[in-house]
């Protein structure tokens, strides 16, 4: 940015000519300096990631050395007796993220179909923006809305859901639990609304990369819009669609505030989705500032490490899927 102030001096031809004749080596020096300084900032980004990983390992060292792998399969979390096991929050994180995807993926697919194939061109931009604005709303707003507006409504509905769907054999259990309106299901539902814009906009973007000639060929053979989407566009953009879903999953795993408001803050592992639970992120948000015992602190940081590891894996997969799609596209054109 410093160069901007010297614009006039540089654009005047005499200065450039003078500099040129002065020495090419001073240019080489300036450029080397420029390369190094920009590279330094790029390396700073790398250092941040390294720093995050290193600090999480250092912080969780106490727990990792004392409990080792047992930490991940123990479901007791009792700061009073100084016993910590990470299984309950891990379970909560996975189950809420799963609910989010089960609801969010089909809805996102529908939105993407609507935006690419059915939407009148005039509405395309405003509706697309509206979906993206859903992603811009801060997560704490989702949390408040979930606690004060959505959960009272769910509390009304849950008894009747338990009485009907809950009676089904085998899968009935998941529709059971105390009808409080808050719990794992509510958290999953709110997460699904939060991941929809991410998944839907990736899907819309990759759907639009399908070469028109493929779609037109299918339409020419008499295929319906749905058949074109399902049999032509979806197979063509498969990698990108999975990448988008993984991106949504990555977001859902680490989402903190929205979940903290509605999940109920209870360490238990239950198949009943209306039960209160805890995710890794919500345990951290609720307890980290109050934790004074080094064991407690270390156990919480171990949870953080676990969360980071999980989302790193999912996001890396997402990124790999999305680049493989753009490579395919590149080789075709």
């Amino acid at each position: 940015m410093t160069g901007l102030s010297t614009t006039h001096e540089a654009t005047s031809p005499t200065t450039i000519a003078a500099k040129k004749s002065a020495s090419a080596s001073s240019f080489a020096f300036q450029d080397a300096l420029f390369h190094r300084s920009t590279q330094f900032f790029a390396l700073l980004v790398l250092a941040t990631l390294a720093g995050i990983i290193a600090s999480l390992f250092i912080g969780s060292w106490l727990t990792l050395t004392q409990s080792g792998p047992r930490f991940f399969v123990t479901d007791v979390w009792d700061p009073v007796r100084n016993l910590y096991g990470g299984m309950a929050p891990l379970w909560g994180t996975l189950i809420t993220a799963t609910i989010a995807l089960v609801i969010g993926v089909p809805v996102s697919f529908g939105i993407a179909i609507f935006l690419t194939e059915m939407c009148p061109p005039v509405l395309k931009r405003p509706l697309g923006t509206a979906v993206e604005l859903l992603a811009a709303i801060p997560s704490i707003i989702y949390g408040m809305w979930g606690l004060f507006i959505l959960s009272p409504i769910l509390a009304e509905l849950q008894p009747s859901i338990s009485a009907t769907l809950g009676k089904l054999p085998i899968i009935g259990t998941i529709f059971q639990g105390p009808p409080m309106g808050i719990g794992v299901f509510t958290a999953g539902l709110i997460l699904s609304i939060m991941v929809i814009p991410f998944i839907a906009s990736v899907m819309r973007d990759v759907f639009e990369t399908t070469p028109p000639i493929l779609k037109e060929s299918a339409y020419g053979l008499g295929a319906t819009t749905w058949e074109v989407m399902w049999n032509v566009v979806l197979p063509y953009t498969k990698a990108g669609v999975i990448g988008g879903i993984m991106l949504g999953l990555g977001r859902a795993l680490g989402e903190t505030m929205a979940v903290t408001f509605v999940i109920g803050n209870a360490y238990n592992i239950s198949l009943q989705l209306f039960d209160a639970g805890n995710s890794i992120a919500s345990s951290l948000a609720n307890e980290f500032n109050e934790a004074s015992d080094p064991n407690h602190l270390s156990a919480l940081i171990t949870l953080g490490l676990m969360l980071f590891f999980l989302s790193f894996l999912v996001l890396a997969l997402s990124r790999w899927m999305l680049t493989s799609l753009s490579k395919k596209e590149g080789s075709r054109t």
Partner: peptide
Amino acid sequence: AIAKVTRFVNDILLSAPSIVIGLFVYAL
């Protein structure tokens, strides 16, 4: 190679759980 790795890491950080970043800065 540096640019490729940076691009990858940047994409991860773009969606990394913000609470973990809070933990990092707490320690730092």
